[in-house]
């Protein structure tokens, strides 16, 4: 693993082979597009097929709602309680994945050979965030169970969050990526996480779940710190490399 960006024999750019590029551009003039239209054809097809598509999946019916009148359930949790359960499920999955992402980053920092061993302050910071992500996961299990829902189920938004996290996971677990790449990946996680907790508190309040909203405030405060920490670590790392 390299620690920073280095000059080398990158083969991807058109300027690497100007003669080839010139002849490739020229032949396109002779053999141009054989189907009329433009990129909007793809957009139109997507629009059309979105109308025919099903859904990712459904929010499981909470155990507490079984046998309960819909009106009673709504009274307890506001209209469309499944919206809150879906988002709680999303955050639960995200935090659970977050633990694993920080573990990957810790391994990356440990692998960095500075000659003096890995940076102990950075490792401690990452370990603290990792532990807090796990606390948040348990907090969300509590919240989902409090609503009588199943914390082991994958809600549609949880599933989609898993798809979003795929790229981040690939970057963090690739042994060739450096600390800066990892920080950048974590920044996308923390930016989204921060906004999501803020919204989740509002949603819990709006659904009349004051206990849950209150319990989430501490997590949100910690997430704000996570974001500030990752932004600052990234800034320090990049500016240090430039100077």
């Amino acid at each position: 693993m390299a620690n920073s960006a280095k000059l080398g024999h990158n083969m991807t750019g058109a300027q690497m082979s100007p003669k080839d590029t010139k002849t490739m551009v020229e032949i396109v003039k002779r053999y141009s597009a054989d189907v009329p239209g433009n990129a909007s054809d793809l957009m139109n097809a997507r629009r059309e097929m979105a109308g025919e598509a099903g859904r990712v999946g459904s929010v499981p019916v909470p155990g507490s709602a079984k046998g309960m009148l819909k009106s009673t359930f709504e009274k307890m949790m506001g209209k469309n309680p499944e919206v809150l359960i879906d988002k709680l499920g999303e955050r639960l999955a995200y935090e659970r994945t977050g633990v694993r992402l920080y573990e990957a980053m810790i391994a990356k920092v440990q692998a960095l050979d500075t000659g003096k061993g890995a940076d102990p302050d950075l490792l401690a910071t990452l370990q603290k965030i990792r532990n807090e992500e796990e606390e948040h996961f348990h907090l969300l299990v509590w919240a989902v169970e409090k609503l009588g829902a199943d914390p082991t189920a994958v809600t549609p938004s949880a599933d989609v969050a898993g798809v979003i996290a795929l790229g981040v996971m690939q970057v963090l677990t690739d042994p060739r990526t450096n600390i800066s790449h990892g920080m950048n990946a974590l920044l996308t996680v923390e930016l989204a996480d921060n906004a999501a907790w803020e919204l989740l508190i509002e949603m819990a309040e709006s659904a009349g779940q004051k206990d849950i909203a209150k319990a989430f405030e501490k997590a949100f405060a910690q997430e704000e710190k996570h974001l500030a920490t990752i932004k600052s670590l990234m800034r320090q790392d990049q500016l240090k490399q430039l100077s």
Partner: peptide
């Protein structure tokens, strides 16, 4: 019901970048 190869390449002319 349509040709996917045509939909994706409608008017496509390769350019560097």
């Amino acid at each position: 019901e349509g040709v996917p190869a045509n939909i994706v390449s409608a008017g496509y002319n390769w350019r560097p970048g």
